[in-house]
């Protein structure tokens, strides 16, 4: 996940300072994303060096009477953001998979049943899918963002369960 692009995108909504950017990033833009304030400032400094953002010092506004840097996009920053939005992201196959690793190793190791691995993973995935499905059903007042994320979670889990069925078939 590109912190750089996320910050450019957040700044497109108006000038902000570092802590605001971090809060918005960790809120709903990058779910489960964690960003320390150091990363925010290093990224902003790099963006500034590249001419994509600029800052203005606002006197005594940080709650302790100290100055605060408020960042804004430059025209070049706008252009970079729009170029990024306009091109497709790299399509990653995301094949680093712990369950695949377990299945492969289980087949090699004496006394371990690969199908047992599949069964247990399936049960765990179904518990997860139940949780997501229930959350979707209950979250009538969910924001569009939350709704879309729950869809992503549910559909990924369904694909994973389908893959486990294939594993079972092909292992037998």
């Amino acid at each position: 996940m590109s912190v750089r692009q996320a910050l450019l995108g957040l700044l497109a909504g108006g000038a902000r300072h570092g802590y605001e950017l971090r809060a918005a990033y960790e809120g709903r833009l990058v779910p489960q994303g964690r960003l320390n304030i150091g990363q925010v400032y290093t990224t902003l400094e790099r963006l500034e060096r590249d001419g994509l953002v600029q800052h203005e010092r606002v006197v005594g506004t940080d709650g302790h009477g100290r100055d605060r840097k408020v960042y804004a996009l430059t025209p070049e920053g706008h252009a970079e953001l729009h170029t990024w939005l306009a091109e497709p992201s790299p399509v990653r196959l995301d094949l680093r998979n712990e369950v695949f690793l377990k299945i492969v190793l289980a087949r090699r190791i004496e006394g371990v049943d690969a199908r047992g691995v599949v069964d247990r993973e399936r049960r765990a995935a179904f518990e997860r899918l139940h949780e997501v499905t229930q959350a979707r059903a209950r979250a009538e007042d969910a924001s569009l963002e939350d709704d879309l994320l729950l869809d992503l979670a549910a559909l990924r889990l369904q694909a994973f369960l389908k893959w486990l069925d294939h594993c079972e078939e092909k292992l037998s």
Binding site: F126, E127, H130, R138, A139
Partner: peptide
């Protein structure tokens, strides 16, 4: 398998 009641959307997404 029983499917235990889960957490709400907010908890799930923030996990």
């Amino acid at each position: 398998q029983s499917l235990p009641a889960g957490r709400d959307a907010h908890e799930l997404l923030g996990e």
